[in-house]
């Protein structure tokens, strides 16, 4: 497996606040990487930098052979290759589901409308949401909205999908339906990076678990070794705290 993403010595600061320090990380193709760590440790920031929604102050982020950190000029093209899904869904409330999904393929890729709609319907069908094609987002449950947001990102056929705490805003009974999609995507070979607070899910789906602390990678590894035998005192402490909270 070749590496799809490679982070080399990435630093990111907001003003005087160093939020990412010396991140070195590889994400192989078709793998799932879970970012975990306490609130404010930099998970969202790392994902937003990967998608060029934020720029980094130092280091390189390679997407195959393109250095993202150095390509702000082609940012739009690169963002189109990287899908991102947010905690708060962020569907466009003034467009129906179909239009939400086809907006980017038609306006960024120049796909013609009927082709884009066919593909959107196909995706909706696969994830059991075809009957919602003409609804507006405010008529959908949180779980349905989040699944549509994932489909919207998939419609661009991205190389990698970044998922930032996509189940955190959901009522408990809807968490499962969104997790199921992610599991299905893993089965289809989608490369994914996800920030999550749900250790059970991370353990189930991850190929690599990355523990961030104060913006640095403190420890990473296969979920069995990571959760079974954490090396660092801080990691153990963190895992104890989150399992106690459950």
């Amino acid at each position: 497996m070749s590496d799809l993403l490679r982070y080399e010595s990435v630093y990111k600061a907001y003003g005087q606040n160093l939020v990412l320090q010396n991140i070195n990380l590889t994400v192989p193709e078709h793998s799932v990487t879970c970012l975990i760590g306490a609130s404010g440790c930099g998970k969202s920031t790392l994902l937003r930098c990967t998608n060029l929604l934020e720029d980094v102050q130092h280091g390189s982020i390679w997407l195959k052979d393109v250095d993202l950190a150095a390509s702000q000029r082609d940012a739009d093209k690169i963002r189109a290759r990287i899908g991102m899904v947010f905690q708060s869904y962020n569907l466009f409330p003034h467009m129906n589901v179909l239009r939400n999904i086809t907006l980017a393929p038609t306006s960024v890729r120049g796909a013609n409308k009927s082709e884009a709609e066919d593909r959107a319907r196909e995706l909706l069908q696969r994830f059991g949401l075809l009957d919602k094609a003409l609804e507006y987002p405010d008529r959908l449950s949180g779980g349905q909205q989040q699944r549509i947001a994932i489909i919207r990102a998939l419609a661009m056929r991205p190389d990698v999908l970044l998922l930032d705490e996509v189940t955190s805003a959901l009522d408990p009974e809807m968490v499962g339906e969104v997790m199921d999609i992610i599991i299905e995507l893993k089965g289809l070979g989608m490369t994914m990076m996800l920030a999550t607070h749900q250790m059970g899910f991370a353990r189930q789906i991850a190929d690599n678990v990355v523990f961030l602390h104060n913006g640095a990678v403190l420890e990473q590894g296969h979920p069995d070794t990571f959760f079974g035998n954490p090396q660092h005192e801080r990691t153990r402490h963190f895992l104890e705290r989150v399992t106690m909270a459950l």
């Binding site: 937003r48 998608n51 929604l53 739009d76 093209k77 963002r79 189109a80 290759r81 990287i82 899908g83 991102m84 947010f86 708060s88 962020n90 569907l91 466009f92 907006l103 980017a104 306006s107 960024v108 947001a149 919207r152 990102a153 661009m156």
Partner: peptide, 13 residues
Amino acid sequence: PSQRSAARSLGLS
């Protein structure tokens, strides 16, 4: 602003 983020993340200029 999250609406902007969502649109930009899809590759919209």
